[in-house]
Computed example of a mutant assay.
Amino acid sequence: MTGVEEAVAGELRLADPAVRASRAEAARLLDPDFVEVGASGRRWSRAEMLAELPGMEGGSADGPRYEVTGMTGVQLGPDLVHLTYETVLAGRRARRSSLWRRSPGGEWRMYYHQATPVPGETGV
């Protein structure tokens, strides 16, 4: 698998309610230096995200699920991939951007993530 394919697979796993509900599974996919700027504007550390992720929307098998569309990726270097895509969760759209980096052990982990809300129904 290429780095882009590995990053896409990891990103899709993080959208899976079973992975979101498991701190151990999510921890395997988040880089030790992970940071997120969420759609709310809040900045999240790795520890904060792992503590809160199971209770967030999208983390329950019987609740709303992330709908992922338009995912594309670019390999920026041998150990760095940039992904962009859109999601819909409970009627709210967001544009998303993630950086994935390869660890010294060869695993691809999310290093940075940002979500930006898409206003209105036009998707502009």
Rank of each mutant, 00 (worst) to 15 (best):
P78C: 02
L53F: 09
R95F: 07
L89P: 01
L76W: 01
A115N: 05
S97Q: 13
P104T: 02
A90S: 11
E121T: 15
Y85G: 00
A51F: 07
E48M: 01
Y66A: 13
W44A: 15
G91H: 04
A7G: 05
V124Q: 07
A51I: 11
R20G: 01
G73C: 04
T116I: 02
A18P: 12
P54R: 09
G38M: 02
L53M: 12
A15M: 13
R23H: 09
S40F: 01
P104H: 08
R20C: 03
V19T: 14
W44C: 13
G120I: 14
V8W: 00
L80A: 10
R93W: 14
P104K: 05
D62P: 12
A24N: 10
M56A: 07
G10N: 02
R43E: 07
A47R: 10
G91N: 05
E25I: 01
R95T: 10
L83C: 03
G70K: 09
R95V: 11
G105C: 12
G123S: 13
R46I: 04
R28Y: 00
A47T: 09
R101L: 00
R13V: 08
W108Q: 02
M49C: 07
P104Q: 04
A51M: 14
H82C: 14
W108C: 04
M49Y: 01
G120H: 12
R95C: 08
Y112R: 12
Q114C: 11
R65S: 15
V37K: 12
G77Y: 01
E6Y: 08
F34W: 12
W108M: 03
R43T: 08
Y112S: 15
G105T: 09
G55M: 12
V8C: 06
T69V: 14
Y85T: 03
V4C: 06
V37H: 13
Y85Q: 02
A51H: 15
T72R: 14
T84M: 14
A26D: 11
A47V: 07
A27W: 03
T2D: 15
A115E: 04
T87C: 06
G91P: 00
V4M: 08
L99F: 09
P117W: 03
E11F: 01
P64V: 13
L12R: 08
S45L: 00
A94L: 05
Y112P: 12
D33K: 03
V19D: 02
S98D: 01
A61K: 15
W100Q: 02
R93A: 14
Y66K: 05
Q75Y: 10
